[in-house]
Design a protein around this nucleic acid. Sequence first.
DNA 1: TGGGGATTT
Length: 764
Amino acid sequence: MLPSKPKKIRLFGSPAKVKSPQLKRKAIPTWVDVSDEEDRKQRRRQSGGGKQKHQQQPQAQSTPQHPQKQHSQISHPQAHSTPPRKKARLSGPTAPIQEQRRLLPIARGRDALVQEIRANEVTVLLGETGSGKTTQVPQYLLESGLAGAAGLIGITQPRKVAAIALAARVSAEQGTPLGGRVGYAVRFDERAGPATRIKYMTDGMLARELLGDALLSRYAVIVVDEAHERTLRTDLLLANLKRILRERNGDGKGKGKEKAANPLKVVIMSATLDAEKFSRFFSNAKIIYVKGRQHPVKIFHSVQGQTDYVDAALRTFFQIHVDQPPGDVLIFLPGQEDIESLEQAVALFARQLPAGHAEVSCAHVRRAPGRADAEDLRLGTAQRAEVHSRDQHRRDVHHHPRCPVCHRHGKSKEKRYLAGSSGGGFDTLLTRDITKSNAMQRAGRAGREGPGFCYRLYTEDAFRTMAPAPSPRSCAAASRGACSSCSASGRHAGARADGRARHRRRLLRLRTLFLLGALDSERAITKLGRAMAAFPLEPAHARALLASKDLACTAEVLDVVSVLAASGGLFVDAAAQRTGIAEARRKFVHPSGDHLTVLNVVRAYAAVGNENDTREEAEEREREREGAEEKVGRSVRKEWARAHFVNERTLREARAIRTQLVVVCRREGLDPRASCGEREEPVLLSLAHGLAQNAALIAPDGSYKQIIGQTVVKIHPSSVMADKKVPAIIYNELVYTNQIYARGVSSIPKSFFASLGAFNRREA
DNA sequence: TGGGGATTT
């Protein structure tokens, strides 16, 4: 891409009059505003005036931490060395920790807040980001005795890092060591003890606790944070909380209430209008509004819709760069390819910029979907930074301290599950519009440290037609996981916050479990099903692992399944280095397909740095992981992974998962060391037991057709099996983009099918 | 020849 100098084109009209949906009050639930009096007056003035925009911030709250210093070259060493995270932002430069707590916006409403929560069973807390609600509310509850003498306060987070960072911060605020009064629990890592009263945890972790204690009786308060992200897990959690409230507190109409010996309080925290949905779900629970640290943000909409949004973002960026005072610019784009091409273009034009303009540096940032906070994005630079984010929801251009933000309208990509006609469905990347609440939240981000701008690369009309708020996401993986925990715990209430029954899909899930042998024809859980549920794995993977017992290849199946269960992809892909990648990868490729290719990578990775170790020695080594020697090994492995274009993060995660699975294997009577050596057949057969639903036979025309289900599938180009013609395949998943692709494919002999239970059960 | 991202006793 070698375009000419960017022409200065006016993309934007005058600032839009945009009402923030966050601030709009609807009559349905009760609203309580716990902001201080001054704020309330101000807001009344604004909304009364009819042209409310973003709230003005009282001067006292305006504490820009880097006032105007961004002109000086590299005068912020910390901007590079320690990318500030949530912690850094919360802690001001010098103020003592208790002083900082007092300065948080939420502190002014503390008493009112505690009073409201005390008076209500369920409270919905609508707080702008930066209000301090996530760190402070649990402490207020504890300090005011709301959790009783020994009750736990659990705060769920959608992400591990957030749970850990928050626990560390709050621990410091309490002046106790982490794992003392304040602790956390995430997968693979728990720091909480008998003294722990405030526990930050991932929502999945609480779901797991639910299996052991259906009433969560140790908890006096459950705080569901970031509820607006609407994952299936949070929705299921909310449904469970509703049930628990009924059982522990009585029905609230009459005698049950006084009798409750161990009542539960629930606090739902949300950053968007969704608050009202949550309120309705919990019988019109009170909504409490907490003001955040929000500076005014001027919003501009594009005069016309932009078709080439990368080009539009490029022009916008330089317009901002030349015309506006220095500061970072944050740009959101939907795909990696867009990000790379924009980055190249920016670098190219930046070099041609006349002298006197600040230099431009670029940084990529990945963001979690739906994440509301901006802290993770804050890569400071001495100059103006351009930060791109790949994130399906936010294909916008955004910005940071005192800076402009642009939004690219559009369709965001979202993984959805399409229920197939019969053989189970498949995931597809659907293109969807972003929502108003997404858009407003993002615009707000430009005002975190001072007044900012937001440029949306879509028209005002486009904004008006957006849906107000996202609906819960669901994709095959999530649903399958949820299903396994549902059936394992004896069928939980299926009520969802939205109330939309997805009956058909649920039936398909049950069918999957039946075909795997986890449920019998009466839909009761079988012995095999119980064993499957013992593993923190998708049913298909758990089934494959259990099949490995009789086939004496548990070690190998563990290797494969732990990678499949890890979150990221195994292989790194960068368009620019495609030939090098193919070359480096060739030595791992196994003729039977992707599963054994994965196994080859895992084995090679395990051997790095300790070529002569046996598996036993390697396991030994794993046990003493924290040592200094291990650190050396780690850097060697890192280098190895880089050289071979494999994702080391994925491999490390897979290792942690494997270690966890080994423990479960031992308990379930599987020998995790049982190995079939170099024989491939037992491994493939085990996997086929789990993936029987995902099997296809070649048709005369060379395409593959599902055995269960009638869909014609094509092997995904990323597979080592792409373009190969074999009699039969199994695959990990189907992805629908412009065709229906099978990903994670292995060739299997047709003779396998006779021994797979799924095909006998199929007739039943 | 094609790729949003989290999470699990």
